[in-house]
Simulated scan of single mutants.
Amino acid sequence: MTDPRVRDPKALRALSHPFRWKLIHVLTEGGPLTATQCSEKLDESVASCSYHLNMLAKYGFVEEVQGPGRQKPWRITRARQSISPDGLDPEGAMAAETAALAYLDQEFERIRERLVARKLLEWEWRDSVGTDGSTKFLTAEELAEYKNELQALLTKYNERMDDPSLRPEGSRAVRIFLGVTVATD
């Protein structure tokens, strides 16, 4: 398994643009896609999509799929990116924080859009869609164990991402977002 940590400050700066996160998400859920197809899905110009895809490719987040034809589709090369300022020099730490905030902004925008669109879903999907939050009083060790248990649930069905033949009929791309924070005293 490839280390998901992004440590290069330049690569982290490449992730600091919110539109690049949109491209990562659209390729994760619907890829491989050409810049034109990304443009249609994201209501952005083909030139803009192409530029940002090339920037993501420069740092290894996406790549062009080889095949016939003039327009080459793009695909995700890393299913997971882990961003943390821990252990980075000040420049890298600032780039990591900026990239993480761009990711969160885009993720929250996406959650808002999908919650508003919930009313368009068939009834069998509506009950499972929503948000939830909980406050616990835990030790650092308990939190680590709890987070590991939640992450194990998040990896369930991961094989369906790379192999569409494993997806059951009627399945859809479902986004599950986990945030774990600790209050500072």
Rank of each mutant, 00 (worst) to 15 (best):
M1Q: 05
M1L: 05
D3P: 02
P9H: 05
K10H: 13
L23S: 06
G30D: 15
P32F: 02
A35Q: 06
T36R: 15
E40I: 08
E40S: 14
D43G: 11
E44P: 06
V46E: 08
A47F: 07
C49E: 00
L53K: 00
L53E: 00
G60T: 01
F61M: 02
F61S: 01
F61L: 01
G67C: 01
G69P: 02
R70W: 05
I76L: 03
I76C: 03
Q81P: 01
Q81R: 04
S82P: 04
S82L: 14
I83V: 09
S84H: 06
S84M: 03
P85W: 04
P85I: 04
D86E: 15
G87Q: 09
L88Q: 09
G92V: 07
A95H: 05
E97M: 14
A99C: 09
L101H: 08
L101W: 09
Y103K: 08
Y103D: 09
D105Q: 13
E107I: 11
V116M: 13
V116E: 12
R118F: 07
K119L: 13
L120N: 14
W123A: 12
E124H: 13
R126G: 05
T131E: 08
D132Y: 11
D132A: 15
G133V: 09
L138G: 07
L138Y: 06
E141I: 11
E142G: 14
A144K: 12
K147D: 13
N148E: 15
L153C: 10
L154K: 06
L154I: 05
T155E: 14
K156V: 14
Y157Q: 15
L166W: 05
R167F: 05
R167L: 12
P168L: 05
G170Y: 05
A173K: 04
R175I: 13
I176E: 08
I176C: 14
F177P: 04
L178I: 08
T181C: 15
V182W: 07
